[in-house]
Amino acid sequence: MLNAGVLWLALSICSEITGTSFIKKTNNFRKLAPSLLVISAYSICYFALTKAMGYIPVGIAYSLWCGFGIIGVTIFSMVLYKQKPDFPAIISMGLIITGAVIMNMFSQM
C-alpha cells in the first residue's frame, strides 16, 4: 500500500505538470479558462508538496518533484505542442529517472 507522502507527492507532480504544460495556452494570462487552470493547478501543486514533505524528507521530495516534473512536462509538450526532444534531452531525462531510482533505493536521507 502506498503511504500518504507518496500520494501527496504524486498529486503535486501531476498538478505541476498540468500547470506548467498549460502556461503557453494562457496567452500571457489573457485567456481566462487556461489562466484559471494554471493558477488552480499550481495552488494544488504547492499544497500537496507541502503535505508530502510532512512524510518524505525535503531533499528527496523536492528532487523527485523536479525530476518527474521535467519529464512529465516534456511528454505533455510533445502531445500539446508537437515538440520533439532531441537525443541529448532524452539522455538527460534517462539520467533523471536513474537518479530518482537510485535515490529511492539507496538513500538513507
Rank of each mutant, 00 (worst) to 15 (best):
K82C: 03
A10N: 01
T50A: 04
D86N: 15
C45D: 06
S21T: 14
Y46D: 00
L49S: 03
L2C: 02
K84N: 01
L64W: 04
S35C: 11
C66L: 11
W65I: 10
G54R: 03
W8Q: 04
R30K: 15
A33E: 03
K31N: 07
S107M: 05
L32N: 01
S43G: 04
M105I: 13
V73W: 07
S63Y: 10
I60N: 02
L32A: 06
I90D: 00
F76G: 00
Y42T: 12
V58I: 14
N3D: 13
I75A: 09
K84G: 00
F68K: 05
G5S: 09
A52C: 06
P85I: 12
L11S: 09
L37M: 06
I75K: 04
F47G: 00
T50N: 04
I91H: 02
S21N: 10
C66F: 08
Y81P: 01
C14Y: 06
W8P: 06
T74L: 06
K82E: 02
A33P: 05
A61P: 01
K24E: 05
P34F: 11
K25Y: 11
S63V: 14
L32F: 12
M93K: 09
F22S: 01
P57Y: 02
I44E: 00
G54A: 10
M1H: 10
M103T: 15
K24M: 10
G5R: 12
G72Y: 12
I102T: 11
G99S: 10
T18N: 05
G19A: 09
I71K: 10
